[in-house]
Amino acid sequence: MKNNKAVKLLSAPYIVWAAAFIIIPLLMVFYYGLTNRDGQFTFANVLAIQQTEHFKSLYLALILALISTVICILLAYPLAMILSSLKGKNEHLVVFIFILPMWMNFLLRTMAWQTLLENDGVINTVLQFLHMPKMHIINTPSAIVFGMVYNFLPFMVLPLYNVLNKIDINVINAARDLGANPFQTFIRITLPLSVPGIISGITMVFVPSLTTFVVSEMLGGSKILLIGNVIEQEFTQNSNWNLGSGLSIVLMLFIIISMIMSAIFDKNGEGNTL
Protein backbone atom coordinates (compact mmCIF):
# COMPACT_ATOMS: atom_id res chain seq x y z
CA MET A 1 0.00 0.00 0.00
CA LYS A 2 3.00 2.27 -0.44
CA ASN A 3 1.51 3.88 -3.51
CA ASN A 4 -1.76 4.62 -1.72
CA LYS A 5 -0.95 8.32 -1.63
CA ALA A 6 -0.09 8.41 -5.30
CA VAL A 7 -3.35 6.70 -6.19
CA LYS A 8 -5.32 9.10 -4.03
CA LEU A 9 -3.74 11.99 -5.93
CA LEU A 10 -5.62 10.76 -8.99
CA SER A 11 -8.75 12.25 -7.51
CA ALA A 12 -7.21 15.73 -7.63
CA PRO A 13 -8.47 16.65 -11.11
CA TYR A 14 -12.04 15.79 -10.23
CA ILE A 15 -11.89 17.53 -6.86
CA VAL A 16 -10.77 20.69 -8.59
CA TRP A 17 -13.38 20.22 -11.31
CA ALA A 18 -16.19 19.57 -8.85
CA ALA A 19 -15.23 22.61 -6.80
CA ALA A 20 -15.13 24.83 -9.87
CA PHE A 21 -18.17 23.56 -11.74
CA ILE A 22 -20.45 22.11 -9.08
CA ILE A 23 -19.82 23.72 -5.70
CA ILE A 24 -18.90 27.29 -6.67
CA PRO A 25 -21.76 27.66 -9.19
CA LEU A 26 -24.22 26.41 -6.59
CA LEU A 27 -22.84 28.87 -4.05
CA MET A 28 -23.24 31.60 -6.65
CA VAL A 29 -26.93 30.77 -6.97
CA PHE A 30 -27.19 31.30 -3.23
CA TYR A 31 -25.11 34.48 -3.42
CA TYR A 32 -27.22 36.04 -6.17
CA GLY A 33 -30.41 34.77 -4.61
CA LEU A 34 -29.64 36.39 -1.29
CA THR A 35 -28.37 39.77 -2.53
CA ASN A 36 -29.85 42.64 -4.52
CA ARG A 37 -28.42 44.26 -7.62
CA ASP A 38 -26.05 46.33 -5.48
CA GLY A 39 -24.70 43.25 -3.77
CA GLN A 40 -26.44 43.89 -0.47
CA PHE A 41 -27.88 41.03 1.55
CA THR A 42 -31.65 40.59 1.23
CA PHE A 43 -34.35 37.96 1.45
CA ALA A 44 -36.50 39.84 -1.06
CA ASN A 45 -35.68 37.53 -4.00
CA VAL A 46 -36.64 34.44 -2.05
CA LEU A 47 -39.72 36.04 -0.57
CA ALA A 48 -40.76 37.13 -4.05
CA ILE A 49 -42.34 33.69 -4.28
CA GLN A 50 -45.21 35.18 -2.26
CA GLN A 51 -46.17 37.46 -5.14
CA THR A 52 -49.35 36.16 -6.72
CA GLU A 53 -47.93 35.40 -10.16
CA HIS A 54 -44.91 33.56 -8.78
CA PHE A 55 -46.89 31.70 -6.18
CA LYS A 56 -49.46 30.68 -8.77
CA SER A 57 -46.75 29.31 -11.04
CA LEU A 58 -45.22 27.30 -8.22
CA TYR A 59 -48.61 26.02 -7.10
CA LEU A 60 -49.57 24.99 -10.62
CA ALA A 61 -46.21 23.28 -11.14
CA LEU A 62 -46.63 21.32 -7.92
CA ILE A 63 -50.18 20.26 -8.83
CA LEU A 64 -49.31 19.25 -12.39
CA ALA A 65 -46.17 17.40 -11.27
CA LEU A 66 -48.19 15.56 -8.64
CA ILE A 67 -50.91 14.58 -11.11
CA SER A 68 -48.33 13.45 -13.66
CA THR A 69 -46.47 11.39 -11.07
CA VAL A 70 -49.65 9.65 -9.93
CA ILE A 71 -50.70 8.91 -13.52
CA CYS A 72 -47.21 7.58 -14.24
CA ILE A 73 -47.37 5.20 -11.27
CA LEU A 74 -50.81 3.97 -12.28
CA LEU A 75 -49.73 3.38 -15.87
CA ALA A 76 -46.26 2.04 -15.14
CA TYR A 77 -46.97 -0.40 -12.33
CA PRO A 78 -49.13 -2.84 -14.28
CA LEU A 79 -46.77 -2.52 -17.23
CA ALA A 80 -43.71 -3.24 -15.10
CA MET A 81 -45.47 -6.24 -13.56
CA ILE A 82 -46.33 -7.64 -16.95
CA LEU A 83 -42.80 -7.01 -18.21
CA SER A 84 -41.21 -8.67 -15.18
CA SER A 85 -43.43 -11.71 -15.60
CA LEU A 86 -42.09 -12.26 -19.10
CA LYS A 87 -39.47 -14.93 -19.26
CA GLY A 88 -37.34 -16.31 -22.02
CA LYS A 89 -35.92 -14.97 -25.22
CA ASN A 90 -38.27 -12.07 -25.83
CA GLU A 91 -38.01 -10.57 -22.37
CA HIS A 92 -35.08 -8.33 -23.27
CA LEU A 93 -36.61 -7.19 -26.52
CA VAL A 94 -39.98 -6.26 -25.03
CA VAL A 95 -38.42 -4.31 -22.17
CA PHE A 96 -36.19 -2.59 -24.72
CA ILE A 97 -39.22 -1.53 -26.74
CA PHE A 98 -40.75 0.21 -23.74
CA ILE A 99 -37.55 1.98 -22.77
CA LEU A 100 -36.60 3.05 -26.28
CA PRO A 101 -38.64 6.29 -26.37
CA MET A 102 -36.53 7.52 -23.45
CA TRP A 103 -33.55 7.83 -25.78
CA MET A 104 -35.41 9.86 -28.37
CA ASN A 105 -34.68 13.56 -28.20
CA PHE A 106 -36.79 15.16 -25.49
CA LEU A 107 -37.78 18.15 -27.58
CA LEU A 108 -38.81 16.08 -30.55
CA ARG A 109 -40.97 13.90 -28.33
CA THR A 110 -42.69 16.98 -26.98
CA MET A 111 -43.01 18.43 -30.45
CA ALA A 112 -44.75 15.25 -31.52
CA TRP A 113 -47.47 15.83 -28.95
CA GLN A 114 -47.84 19.40 -30.09
CA THR A 115 -48.48 18.07 -33.58
CA LEU A 116 -51.02 15.59 -32.29
CA LEU A 117 -52.88 17.84 -29.88
CA GLU A 118 -53.14 21.10 -31.80
CA ASN A 119 -56.55 22.45 -32.69
CA ASP A 120 -55.98 21.57 -36.33
CA GLY A 121 -53.63 18.73 -35.34
CA VAL A 122 -53.76 15.04 -36.09
CA ILE A 123 -56.13 13.97 -33.32
CA ASN A 124 -58.69 16.60 -34.13
CA THR A 125 -58.48 15.82 -37.84
CA VAL A 126 -59.22 12.19 -37.07
CA LEU A 127 -62.06 13.17 -34.73
CA GLN A 128 -63.54 15.43 -37.39
CA PHE A 129 -63.34 12.66 -39.93
CA LEU A 130 -65.29 10.45 -37.53
CA HIS A 131 -67.83 13.28 -37.05
CA MET A 132 -66.97 13.62 -33.41
CA PRO A 133 -66.59 16.89 -31.53
CA LYS A 134 -63.15 18.50 -31.57
CA MET A 135 -61.08 18.45 -28.42
CA HIS A 136 -59.47 21.58 -27.17
CA ILE A 137 -56.40 20.38 -25.36
CA ILE A 138 -53.40 22.32 -26.57
CA ASN A 139 -52.42 25.27 -24.38
CA THR A 140 -54.29 23.85 -21.39
CA PRO A 141 -52.84 22.29 -18.25
CA SER A 142 -54.09 18.91 -19.54
CA ALA A 143 -51.76 19.13 -22.50
CA ILE A 144 -48.85 19.80 -20.14
CA VAL A 145 -49.78 16.75 -18.07
CA PHE A 146 -49.94 14.71 -21.28
CA GLY A 147 -46.45 15.84 -22.19
CA MET A 148 -45.03 15.18 -18.73
CA VAL A 149 -46.53 11.70 -18.52
CA TYR A 150 -45.34 10.85 -22.01
CA ASN A 151 -41.82 12.14 -21.45
CA PHE A 152 -41.23 10.74 -18.00
CA LEU A 153 -43.17 7.46 -18.08
CA PRO A 154 -40.08 5.37 -18.94
CA PHE A 155 -38.34 6.83 -15.86
CA MET A 156 -41.10 5.25 -13.79
CA VAL A 157 -41.21 1.97 -15.69
CA LEU A 158 -37.49 1.27 -15.43
CA PRO A 159 -36.97 1.33 -11.64
CA LEU A 160 -40.26 -0.49 -11.09
CA TYR A 161 -39.30 -3.16 -13.58
CA ASN A 162 -35.87 -3.54 -11.97
CA VAL A 163 -37.20 -3.94 -8.47
CA LEU A 164 -40.05 -6.27 -9.48
CA ASN A 165 -37.73 -8.36 -11.57
CA LYS A 166 -35.45 -8.87 -8.57
CA ILE A 167 -38.20 -10.36 -6.39
CA ASP A 168 -37.53 -14.08 -6.02
CA ILE A 169 -40.41 -15.96 -7.62
CA ASN A 170 -40.30 -18.34 -4.66
CA VAL A 171 -41.16 -15.48 -2.31
CA ILE A 172 -44.38 -15.00 -4.28
CA ASN A 173 -44.88 -18.76 -4.31
CA ALA A 174 -44.29 -18.89 -0.57
CA ALA A 175 -47.09 -16.40 0.02
CA ARG A 176 -49.44 -18.45 -2.16
CA ASP A 177 -48.27 -21.58 -0.38
CA LEU A 178 -49.15 -20.03 2.98
CA GLY A 179 -52.69 -19.42 1.83
CA ALA A 180 -52.68 -15.95 0.29
CA ASN A 181 -54.74 -15.48 -2.87
CA PRO A 182 -53.23 -13.48 -5.74
CA PHE A 183 -54.70 -10.20 -4.51
CA GLN A 184 -53.47 -10.70 -0.93
CA THR A 185 -50.07 -11.69 -2.28
CA PHE A 186 -49.90 -8.44 -4.22
CA ILE A 187 -50.93 -6.23 -1.31
CA ARG A 188 -48.81 -7.91 1.35
CA ILE A 189 -45.73 -9.01 -0.58
CA THR A 190 -45.23 -7.55 -4.04
CA LEU A 191 -46.26 -3.99 -3.24
CA PRO A 192 -44.18 -3.56 -0.07
CA LEU A 193 -41.15 -5.16 -1.71
CA SER A 194 -41.39 -2.75 -4.65
CA VAL A 195 -41.44 0.40 -2.49
CA PRO A 196 -37.81 1.33 -3.29
CA GLY A 197 -38.65 1.20 -7.00
CA ILE A 198 -41.78 3.30 -6.53
CA ILE A 199 -39.81 5.88 -4.56
CA SER A 200 -37.01 6.20 -7.07
CA GLY A 201 -39.59 6.33 -9.86
CA ILE A 202 -41.41 9.14 -8.06
CA THR A 203 -38.23 11.20 -7.69
CA MET A 204 -37.30 10.60 -11.29
CA VAL A 205 -40.70 11.80 -12.51
CA PHE A 206 -41.60 14.40 -9.91
CA VAL A 207 -38.43 16.52 -9.96
CA PRO A 208 -38.21 17.01 -13.73
CA SER A 209 -41.97 17.60 -13.93
CA LEU A 210 -41.86 20.19 -11.18
CA THR A 211 -38.96 22.07 -12.70
CA THR A 212 -39.66 21.80 -16.42
CA PHE A 213 -40.08 24.83 -18.60
CA VAL A 214 -39.86 23.06 -21.95
CA VAL A 215 -43.05 21.01 -21.74
CA SER A 216 -45.09 23.96 -20.51
CA GLU A 217 -43.58 26.25 -23.12
CA MET A 218 -44.31 23.88 -26.00
CA LEU A 219 -47.66 22.44 -24.97
CA GLY A 220 -49.02 25.18 -22.74
CA GLY A 221 -48.39 28.06 -25.10
CA SER A 222 -46.93 31.11 -23.45
CA LYS A 223 -50.09 31.58 -21.42
CA ILE A 224 -49.46 28.97 -18.77
CA LEU A 225 -46.40 29.67 -16.67
CA LEU A 226 -44.86 27.14 -14.36
CA ILE A 227 -42.15 28.03 -11.87
CA GLY A 228 -39.59 26.72 -14.36
CA ASN A 229 -40.80 29.17 -16.99
CA VAL A 230 -40.63 32.07 -14.55
CA ILE A 231 -37.03 31.28 -13.60
CA GLU A 232 -36.04 30.74 -17.21
CA GLN A 233 -37.49 34.08 -18.23
CA GLU A 234 -35.76 35.92 -15.41
CA PHE A 235 -32.45 34.60 -16.70
CA THR A 236 -32.84 34.72 -20.47
CA GLN A 237 -35.22 37.64 -21.02
CA ASN A 238 -35.33 39.94 -17.99
CA SER A 239 -31.70 39.40 -16.99
CA ASN A 240 -32.79 39.61 -13.37
CA TRP A 241 -30.39 37.01 -12.04
CA ASN A 242 -31.01 37.90 -8.44
CA LEU A 243 -34.73 37.22 -8.69
CA GLY A 244 -34.16 34.10 -10.79
CA SER A 245 -31.66 32.77 -8.25
CA GLY A 246 -33.98 33.60 -5.35
CA LEU A 247 -36.81 31.63 -6.94
CA SER A 248 -34.38 28.80 -7.71
CA ILE A 249 -33.55 28.59 -4.02
CA VAL A 250 -37.26 28.11 -3.32
CA LEU A 251 -37.40 25.45 -6.02
CA MET A 252 -34.37 23.69 -4.56
CA LEU A 253 -36.12 23.66 -1.21
CA PHE A 254 -38.87 21.56 -2.74
CA ILE A 255 -36.35 19.28 -4.42
CA ILE A 256 -34.54 18.79 -1.13
CA ILE A 257 -37.83 18.05 0.64
CA SER A 258 -38.68 15.41 -1.94
CA MET A 259 -35.15 13.96 -1.68
CA ILE A 260 -35.39 13.72 2.09
CA MET A 261 -38.79 12.11 1.88
CA SER A 262 -37.54 9.55 -0.59
CA ALA A 263 -34.41 8.95 1.52
CA ILE A 264 -36.57 8.22 4.55
CA PHE A 265 -38.84 5.88 2.64
CA ASP A 266 -36.00 4.29 0.79
CA LYS A 267 -34.13 3.63 4.00
CA ASN A 268 -37.12 1.72 5.28
CA GLY A 269 -37.49 0.06 1.95
CA GLU A 270 -33.86 -0.86 1.58
CA GLY A 271 -33.54 -1.92 5.18
CA ASN A 272 -36.21 -4.40 4.32
CA THR A 273 -34.99 -5.54 0.97
CA LEU A 274 -31.33 -6.06 1.62
Binding site: N170, V171, R176, N272, T273
Partner: peptide
Protein backbone atom coordinates in the same frame (compact mmCIF):
# COMPACT_ATOMS: atom_id res chain seq x y z
CA UNK B 1 -54.46 -23.25 -6.54
CA UNK B 2 -51.50 -23.47 -4.12
CA UNK B 3 -53.26 -21.33 -1.49
CA UNK B 4 -56.08 -23.88 -1.27
CA UNK B 5 -53.85 -26.90 -0.62
CA UNK B 6 -53.33 -28.40 2.81
CA UNK B 7 -49.61 -28.55 2.47
CA UNK B 8 -46.76 -26.10 2.92
CA UNK B 9 -43.40 -25.70 1.32
CA UNK B 10 -39.94 -24.83 2.59
CA UNK B 11 -38.30 -23.24 -0.42
CA UNK B 12 -34.79 -23.32 -1.78
CA UNK B 13 -32.92 -20.34 -0.33
CA UNK B 14 -35.74 -19.94 2.21
CA UNK B 15 -37.79 -17.28 0.34
CA UNK B 16 -38.43 -15.32 3.54
CA UNK B 17 -40.37 -12.05 3.36
CA UNK B 18 -37.52 -9.59 3.86
CA UNK B 19 -39.83 -6.68 4.68
CA UNK B 20 -41.31 -8.47 7.68
Amino acid sequence: APNKRQLNTVFQKYALFTHM
